[in-house]
Design a protein around this nucleic acid. Structure first.
Lengths: 213, 213
DNA sequence: TAGATTGTTAATCGATTAACAATC
DNA sequence: TAGATTGTTAATCGATTAACAATC
């Protein structure tokens, strides 16, 4: 399990394996070959075997892979059994959607606090969690051993908030803003979700498809 | 402009260029060298020049690139001046956040309809757009020349909705569900946003960072 | 045993980086 | 002209695919 040097591209594929394996498990499929799995996922058998072997031989020659065992192994590799304590900052549209919608417990996290600076919505609840005043952020993070932050504030507020979090030891970010955390904090762990970037690439593809008609 | 064979990796970087160039423009920076731009974006000068040259020589030797001209060129390449008509289906948390939050007009799109099957919220408004009954989807798409759909429904509803859209000629999708559109419709243009996948990779990275302590 | 399918090495392909001549 | 910086070719690096011996 402790193999090092797993490439980012492999890691990014693991959640997909996990999802398809979960579906197979629900359909009571007990075993699957790299070829079949590749077919379902529209990739190659080679890639499936190469990927899975980064972590050690989960398969059996002449048999394939045990669906449920493989699924569990991937969960372990991803660390989904963790309960990293996380806070969400900014309960606007995106923040509220994230807080209400994500099944954090299945994803290795536990959402323990929601913060906003809009006095009017303080005390409102999202999934049993009260919206907390942003000025309590530091004390809360220290008291509760918070390890990650989900950043859903406007870009103008992001640098300040990240700085404050970083100062109380929160160095892992799920970043929905366009603030460039890695630029200022190269050692932070960051996953960015730049929704508008993605929509722009859809625009490009549609544009291109039209030209090629 | 009509260069073909631009790789997906280059395209995915264009929105980032666009963002950083917009910032530079706001700061009244008139020109920039590939080296400086690379520094800001934490990449290499080589990559910047290589990327930009896919589309033709926007730079001037000995001078660099004109920030505003380059920004405009990238906008043109991405097709941000389009107004692709789009519908959003599913106005739950995520759907509402997307409808209310995105500046579609800056991103090449125009949101012309929002649909849901929850009778209780029909008629409610999000940014001046009434929530429409899902059963009117087909007629609406045909009448309004809809070209793209933003899919924010539960996974269980996704296959049905995509099929219906596809049948009335909507083949471009921004997909927030885990339904695998490309699996069933290989010629559809799709951008997936699998939020839980991204959160899982953040979990992995945090897990890994802890092990290496 | 024969058939199936893995684990793993080697070959290919693509993307990134380095180098440098062209030129503003 | 000298200095700066591009455009572009060549070298390197990494990721994907193909091939096949090992083995269940």
């Amino acid at each position: 399990m402790n193999k090092e040097n797993i490439s980012k591209s492999v890691i990014r594929r693991l959640p997909r394996y996990y999802r398809f394996l979960s579906e197979l498990e629900e359909n009571d499929t007990e075993r699957i070959s790299s070829g079949k799995l590749a077919q379902i996922m529209r990739t190659t058998a080679s890639q499936v075997r190469q990927d899975l072997n980064c972590f050690g031989g989960f398969g059996h020659q002449g048999y394939g892979y045990s669906v449920s065992k493989l699924k569990d192994e991937i969960a372990k590799i991803l660390g989904l059994d963790n309960k990293f304590k996380a806070v969400l900052i900014g309960s606007g549209h995106i923040g509220t959607a994230i807080a209400a919608h994500m099944e954090f417990k299945k994803l290795g996290f536990e959402l323990v606090g929601i913060f906003d600076n809009n006095q009017e919505i303080l005390g409102e609840k999202i999934n049993d969690l009260e919206i907390n005043d942003e000025k309590n952020l530091e004390s809360f993070c220290k008291d509760n051993n918070v390890e990650a932050a989900f950043l859903c504030v406007p870009k103008s507020a992001a640098a300040d908030i990240v700085g404050r979090l970083y100062n109380c030891g929160v160095k892992n970010f799920w970043n929905f803003t366009h603030y460039y955390i890695q630029g200022d904090y190269p050692d932070a762990t960051v996953e960015n979700v730049h929704l508008s970037d993605i929509l722009m690439t859809l625009c490009y593809s549609m544009n291109e498809a039209e030209e090629n008609k």
